[in-house]
């Protein structure tokens, strides 16, 4: 255990929960296993590059930018990953499971589905700005963008998509499916429960 690792863990402690939440919400379209892989890789990379962090006060934005980059890399490599043998991931057997699977049901509700309406960059911008509490400038830096206006318009698009979703714009296909349900079957019951939960 080195001084560097200790300091890293110390700085990580207050940000840990938010970092994991951000990563899991970013991976709302994906499984908890994928989110686990991304957060593990991000923490590993952050620890390896900890020496390059000069201002410790910027640890939070630095960590979130690593997670964001790792996520982008992950989705970019998704295509190639299918050509690798399934035992490829066994190279890190000692990795602990960081994402608590018992809380996964939270990510199966309508709100999580709403996040899926957004593309990866929009979802990331929205989570960083609205949930992570980062400024537009910080969000721009974390996302590796060069202009504030790009982030602002991304945020604006994301909000409008969410609004549309909650106004049933995005779930129109589900309404179409509704007509195919037979009354009383499991799909119909599920649909009814969702509508009730929404207060409709």
């Amino acid at each position: 255990m080195s001084f560097e690792s200790n300091r890293f863990v110390e700085l990580l402690r207050p940000e840990y929960n938010d970092a994991l939440k951000y990563c899991r919400a970013l991976c709302s379209k994906r499984s908890a296993d994928d989110a686990d892989d991304i957060i593990q890789q991000s923490l590993l990379k952050a620890l390896e590059n900890f020496g390059s962090l000069r201002i410790e006060e910027r640890f939070r934005s630095w960590l979130f930018s690593i997670i964001t980059r790792e996520y982008y890399n992950w989705i970019r490599k998704d295509f190639w990953r299918r050509f690798l043998p399934s035992d490829d991931e066994k190279q890190f057997p000692e990795f602990p499971e960081l994402i608590d699977r018992s809380q996964e049901n939270i990510f199966k509700n309508d709100i999580a589905t709403a996040l899926n309406c957004l593309n990866d960059k929009e979802r990331s911008a929205l989570l960083l700005f609205e949930i992570g509490g980062f400024s537009i400038q910080e969000t721009m830096e974390i996302q590796g963008e060069r202009s504030l206006s790009a982030v602002k318009s991304r945020l604006s698009r994301a909000r409008s998509k969410l609004k549309d979703y909650f106004n049933n714009e995005c779930i129109k296909p589900a309404n179409k499916i509704k007509s195919e349900f037979s009354e009383g079957d499991i799909s119909d019951e599920t649909y009814r429960l969702i509508q009730e939960a929404r207060g409709k």
Binding site: N6, V9, L47, P96, L98, D100, I106, L126
Partner: peptide, 30 residues
């Protein structure tokens, strides 16, 4: 909409796994 997303994420808490993460990170040779 954003309040809903915030509320959803506030329900999640991953603090419990911090100790195993810290142990794992401390065990890695940088």
């Amino acid at each position: 909409e954003m309040n809903d997303v915030s509320r959803m994420l506030n329900k999640v808490n991953y603090e419990d796994s911090f100790d195993s993460a810290a142990g794992w990170l401390n065990g890695i040779k940088v």
